[in-house]
């Protein structure tokens, strides 16, 4: 791993440690907002760990940042909507209360967006064909070895 990327990955782990401690405090203080918003940042850190070769680069930050911001917006709007009462208002959206409609449709869509982001940023791995062949042979060869014992 490049030195710069390695240092960045160390910093990410310190951020994760900080967020974990914050969540611990949130749980002990019964603050759901501290737990929830820390969790969303942990999601962002997890995505960044998927790009350590490219860190610190624009693409990883863009992918992780957009996922965290979209989830953050979803929960912030939900928080505002349900501030007064759990069902938000007396209106209906697609037959559901507005917060229910937002959550039921919004959360899965964001999961799908995150999955699509993984696919479109995916780069295929090149593995030494000789290494791969050796590994396959090892799996295939074990039987004859095992049976002869």
């Amino acid at each position: 791993m490049e030195r710069e990327a390695m240092e960045f990955s160390n910093k990410l782990m310190y951020v994760l440690l900080g967020l974990a401690v914050l969540m611990l405090v949130g749980m002990l203080a019964s603050s759901w907002r501290v737990v929830l918003y820390s969790f969303l940042l942990v999601v962002g850190v997890s995505i960044l760990f998927g790009f350590t070769r490219e860190l610190p680069g624009r693409r990883p930050v863009l992918v992780a940042g957009s996922v965290v911001v979209l989830y953050g917006l979803l929960f912030a709007v939900l928080d505002v909507m349900t501030g007064g009462e759990p069902t938000g208002s007396t209106n209906y959206v697609l037959g559901m209360t507005p917060p229910m409609a937002l959550y039921l449709l919004g959360f899965p869509v964001l999961v799908v967006i995150t999955g699509v982001l993984y696919a479109v940023t995916f780069t295929q791995e090149d593995v030494d064909p000789e290494l791969l062949e050796r590994e396959r042979a090892a799996i295939g060869g074990e039987e004859s070895e095992g049976e002869s014992r």
Binding site: V43, S46, I47, G50, V111, T114, G115, Y118
Partner: peptide, 9 residues
């Protein structure tokens, strides 16, 4: 969501 994060990680 956890499935996708596992793939990333």
């Amino acid at each position: 969501l956890g499935f996708v994060l596992a793939w990333f990680l």
